[in-house]
């Protein structure tokens, strides 16, 4: 890889105060976001992928304590003044969320909500921004744009609302679009449409997408690179094809086995046990209690190996 990354996340850690104790929800995660790629952050619920995504724009509540560095355009997002951050949010990095039903403001028209980032960042007047909003609705394949612009969110279906969210995200032609489980709340058929749309737009506009998902089927369809998270640790990162062909970390392997397959009938393989609670993380490798290959070394935390296919596991020192 010769291209320079758009964003460099270095040793990111996120802690929350729970019952007078700081608990680490994300534990020193590092990854790069390259231009023009789809990076998928994968993991079970509660593994820290959503808060990692939110921290890329510093959207977490003030009660969260962040450590490490998020390099963007030579600056650190984590230490940037709020005013400067406001010129980046929505303009150079945009985000769409998991809940299209509640993520749009119920008392503002769709048109106003799409036009807003253009007025905030591009110095457009409202009339001009609304005209541009019309093109954006075309871009996200919402027909009858003129009528839709005047409508309120409650008049739109879930899939339609998520398209509106995408239109808001794309309004200022950002370099990075962060999509936090954008299809989880939608019907399966609508999910496929929305994902196809995101992929298409990425190709047309040449932006990078960070897609947060727990759905490996989605990952297989759209990802260029995959980062697998477990209990706040980044456990494996690799180009998508390689990850599916040669998953290395025992957790990734187990995760891939959980995907139901048509040829395997009803033979499901759940991962036994649960993600450890944020208040009682295991001392060593955080996956060890659920790992079939755990041995003595696993009682101390392994490091992430280097290279394009990196693994955090004592039993996999030889890969990459």
């Amino acid at each position: 890889m010769t291209a320079t990354p758009l964003m460099t996340v270095e040793d990111l850690s996120i802690s929350f105060r729970i019952e007078d104790r700081w608990c680490r929800a994300v534990n020193g995660v590092s990854f790069d976001i390259m231009p023009d790629e789809t990076l998928c952050l994968v993991g079970e619920s509660g593994c820290g992928k959503s808060i990692t995504a939110m921290s890329l724009m510093r959207l977490l509540p003030g009660s969260a304590r962040l450590g490490g560095r998020i390099g963007f355009d030579g600056k650190d997002i984590l230490t940037m003044p709020e005013a400067e951050l406001q010129t980046i949010r929505g303009r150079r990095i945009a985000m769409i969320f998991q809940e299209p039903m509640t993520s749009l403001n119920p008392v503002l028209t769709v048109g106003e909500q799409i036009a807003e980032p253009l007025v905030l960042h591009k110095g457009m007047g409202w009339a001009e921004a609304k005209r541009e909003a019309r093109h954006l609705l075309d871009l996200v394949r919402i027909p009858d744009a003129d009528r839709r612009l005047r409508q309120y969110p409650y008049e739109l279906s879930g899939g339609m609302r998520q398209r509106v969210m995408i239109a808001i995200g794309l309004a200022c032609r950002p370099e990075i679009l962060i999509a936090d489980e954008p299809t989880t709340a939608l019907d399966v058929t609508i999910q496929a449409q929305v994902l196809a749309l995101l992929d298409e737009i990425r190709r047309e506009q040449g932006l990078s997408i960070v897609l947060i998902t727990h759905d490996l089927g989605v990952v297989a369809n759209v990802a260029d690179r995959v980062a697998v998270m477990y209990a706040g640790d980044l456990v494996e990162t690799a180009p998508a094809g390689e990850l599916f062909d040669k998953p290395s970390h025992p957790y990734t392997q187990a995760l891939l086995r959980t995907v139901p397959r048509a040829d395997a009938a009803f033979d499901l393989h759940p991962i036994e046990g649960q993600v450890p609670s944020i208040q009682s993380m295991p001392e060593g490798c955080r996956f060890a209690p659920r790992c079939g290959e755990a041995h003595a070394a696993c009682s101390s935390p392994p490091n992430l190996s280097s290279g394009p296919h990196a693994v955090r596991c004592w039993a996999r020192r030889d890969v990459a």
């Binding site: 951050l85 406001q86 929505g90 509640t102 749009l104 403001n105 905030l120």
Partner: peptide, 25 residues
Amino acid sequence: EDYIRTARAKGAPMRRLFLHHALRN
């Protein structure tokens, strides 16, 4: 509410966040 988070993600300044997005609701 989630839509306040959306407004923050758009880069809306605090003033607009409170007086426009939150107050009307």
